[in-house]
Design a protein around this nucleic acid. Sequence first.
DNA 1: AACAAGTGGGAATGCGCTTTCCCAATCAGG
DNA 2: CCTGATTGGGAAAGCGCATTCCCACTTGTT
Lengths: 362, 362
Amino acid sequence: MAASTLTEVARLAGVSPATASRVLNGSARKPGKDIAERVRQAADSLGYIPNAQAQGLAKSSSGLIGLIVHDIADPYFAAIARGVQEAAREQRRMVLLATTGGAPGEEKEAVAAFAARRADSIVIAGSRSSRAEDGDQNAELAAELDRYCRNGGQVAVVGHPVVGAAAPEGYHVVSVPNQELAAKLAVELAAGWDGDFVIIGGPEGLFTSDDRIRGFQEGLSRAGRGPAEVLRSSFNRSGGYDAGLKLAARIKAGGTGQSGRPAGNGLGIFAVNDVMAIGAAAALRTEGLRIPRDARIAGFDDIETLRDFRPALSTVSLPLEEIGRLATRATAPPTADGDEQDYAPLPVTGKVMLRRSTETAD
Amino acid sequence: MAASTLTEVARLAGVSPATASRVLNGSARKPGKDIAERVRQAADSLGYIPNAQAQGLAKSSSGLIGLIVHDIADPYFAAIARGVQEAAREQRRMVLLATTGGAPGEEKEAVAAFAARRADSIVIAGSRSSRAEDGDQNAELAAELDRYCRNGGQVAVVGHPVVGAAAPEGYHVVSVPNQELAAKLAVELAAGWDGDFVIIGGPEGLFTSDDRIRGFQEGLSRAGRGPAEVLRSSFNRSGGYDAGLKLAARIKAGGTGQSGRPAGNGLGIFAVNDVMAIGAAAALRTEGLRIPRDARIAGFDDIETLRDFRPALSTVSLPLEEIGRLATRATAPPTADGDEQDYAPLPVTGKVMLRRSTETAD
DNA sequence: AACAAGTGGGAATGCGCTTTCCCAATCAGG
DNA sequence: CCTGATTGGGAAAGCGCATTCCCACTTGTT
């Protein structure tokens, strides 16, 4: 028994498929009350479920929205995904998920796959990279997105625009003030701690990471401090852990900081995201160091699952879920009532959260 | 410029659409080398992307796999989702995401939506509930799934079968030995602690929760202990927190001295999942109690993000990602080479992890 | 009472693709 | 050199639905 079709329903109700279509799937023309009723009965006596593929083919639009993330198990992306999902539901659309590990090549393929499925819009949540080695693939990604938009697709990118993407109609950016917020964090941290700072960053070229590093340095300078040393490492917990081990060794050596000043009273560590910060903290702890006594540490994102971590992690709170919602809404088809989609970047704000992990002991 | 079609490609290459289709989209019949080359060139000079909807319609199969979870931002589901995503990629399929908050009504709708999109298979990750008030909707869910399977769909359920679902062909269950593992945990905990146990459970009727509670009680009895009291609360962090507050009060009431050290020697707490356990721990801490000194606490799932929590949480490690993969693979179309899909439940094993949070002080 | 405008339903077309089915050309064997 | 078996390409029929016409019929107007 194959799923029943509109035609079968129509036949059962004794009407034409056209009429059945009109009553079952919102059309401008509303058939007469009695007929409508008959069709509806026939439909659910048959357990009719419209074939979305056929519908999509017929009206060329699928009710699908594609979401691209690096890793759905990363709480950062998971939070954004929740927002996207929520907004999608509001718009009665479904979300198609693609994970790419951050490789632009994979992202390009994901875009193509979404295009193939005629997704109405695409939300790209992962941070883009500007590394030279990714240049070609980035270009391909941009080209693919471009084509997608030209064919009427809507795209929203979280954070940075895709490198080299022209900005055709339908291309939206939800920009996150990573740099500003990192600067603010630096300023506030510098106010409470006069030792050296070290930054644990992601691989060079990752926009999110680079912005946060740049912002932090800027904040330091604003506070009259010299630039902090930057340790590069992978953009996840184990990256943070590795960097943490190195720093632990340094702290225990009690040597001199990069500035040449004694680093006897520990270090101020800024990890470009919470997950890395937690990794670093774990490493320090493993090495017998205590936070914030031996090292103050701050992260970025304010991941919910990590809020119960002790000592409570200083960080920058970002409305991740809201960001997902905003991105999704930005791609919504123009609402009927004389709307005004603003194609300008949408405003997102964050908040510096100073907590236990950066308190000065005394 | 609308996306280009197969017909356009065919025309450019000077062949029939049939031939173009055969070379571009894997068909049994392979056209001649030279012609194939011409078609392929035409295709990518036009930037041709096959319309998956049309393909789906024509061969009635969509390359889609539907995933149903309660909340994608919950690390438990996120981990499973990662496994599903991974397996889907292996099979060159895409995943459609639906979140339901655990309501059977929503789940039924999600199944219908997947069916409408002609998803080849559905993976249901959320725990089902058997509460009376959900009875009707559960029945509807079961009916919907039944119909879906009868129409050739494959479904895999993680944990428990859907209540009332017959087991038609195409219905798979990845069973998780929640009860056994909880029993084992209880036995091991009881070996190291001779005080009272309390269980923080989810709402009554939630299978996962109930199984774990039952198992834990069973383990206690196996260890010669009486059954533990069960505190019901919501199946998330805040549920754990609330329960934690109550228990904190109780522990403190049990105490006399100003030392803060409760008389008696505290409580052994088992929360039915890690997230709840963390919530409970946070509550205890808020109330000035210390773990494991004033209360030993254990969770379930071994959520990765929570592994850096201190004191390290005793728990039961579950191969969440693997579970997602297994479920997805169970729904894979029979492989060509004389396969033998076993429709029997797949084996999943877990492991009791005793860590700091349940260590006895001395 | 006669005609224009409006209503409500059906026939037919097409969305983009896959897949029989059919036919011409090639091939092997005698 | 002829015949039956193959091969390789094209024509055409859907897949399930939305939608544009078109037509029969009911209303509303001088």
